[in-house]
Write a protein that binds this DNA or RNA. Structure first.
Lengths: 159, 159
DNA sequence: GCACTTTACTTGAAAGTTCAACTAAATGAC
DNA sequence: GTCATTTAGTTGAACTTTCAAGTAAAGTGC
């Protein structure tokens, strides 16, 4: 017999869900605000962080969109802005002439090298420090499981 | 002696942090998409849900902004849109003539009554069902703690 | 009462994001 | 090779959110 979900959430479920979304929104808000002193949003930080770790400090636009979890269009607009700020530059791709590289400039590298310690500190004090060792493992397990669930649902939707 | 945070995250911290933000972004994305069939964003859903539970199905703009976690400006713009959709209406406030009520219409009530079961189902299948009873409690504890931390930091910033 | 500050809310413009349409190159079928 | 399809990326318009400024009413000090 198939499990039928009751219509509303139990108090326990409700508490888990609400504490999670409320704290998450506030947390992201706080982290974003912490970064704003470096003129960066979390999304822009992620783009720069990914670029800084990539070989040649360059990534193809599509790949960058993928790993930074942005739509292609959003990334394209954002790179235009970052280009004006002098943090990245676009470069034509010889192997695939449809393609474009997003290349981090020296200035971009400096920007993220400067921002990173503050951001890490911010993530630590606002989030990680509130979790003991066991919490960290549990949380990772739970969210990996959630992500796996999302992926499999996504896959089955496509089939 | 003050605790000095090492510069970068340990693998364990990294795993906790990354699984959390990645899964969270995907989760929110999925929940939003699930709601889009009802022509609602999560933010709009929250606004309507709060109104539906309020006495007289009406809440003062400022209070609504507070509980729905939106800026006043954002709420004001959003209510303008929802007003056009016929879900809410503004009403002058007699007790405080600067004030305004956001009042849910019958149509708005119908919209959320229709959307709610799907949304609950979506939260359940995509998130809560991945957590066992103990996970739910741990998660609630952790995020309540994170929220408390944010509040106290916020308070101390103001002082 | 009168000035001063604060509170409640809105507004318009700027900045950011999404959406659909578009160009151009690569790939695949035959 | 040629036609259709897919992939890579950009663009402009529509919409959303933020930001700074504005209006009007309350509250406060004296």
């Amino acid at each position: 017999m198939a499990k039928v979900s009751p219509k509303w959430l139990t108090p326990k479920e409700m508490r888990a869900w609400r504490s999670y979304i409320i704290a998450s929104r506030r947390l992201l808000e706080a982290l974003d605000q912490d970064l704003s002193g470096h003129d960066l949003s979390m999304a822009d930080y992620e783009v720069l962080a990914q670029l800084s770790e990539a070989p040649g400090r360059r990534i193809r636009m599509s790949d960058l969109a993928e790993i930074a979890m942005l739509s292609k269009s959003r990334l394209s607009h954002r790179i235009t802005v970052m280009e004006k700020a002098g943090w990245v530059r676009r470069e034509a791709c010889k192997e695939d002439r449809r393609g474009a590289w997003a290349v981090m400039t020296e200035k971009g590298l400096k920007a993220i090298v400067k921002a990173a310690p503050d951001h890490v500190d911010s993530v630590r004090t606002r989030f990680l420090d509130r979790l003991d060792g066991e919490d960290q493992i549990n949380l990772a397990d739970v969210f990996e499981e959630v992500l796996a669930g999302l992926r499999s649902e996504f896959k089955s939707e496509k089939e």
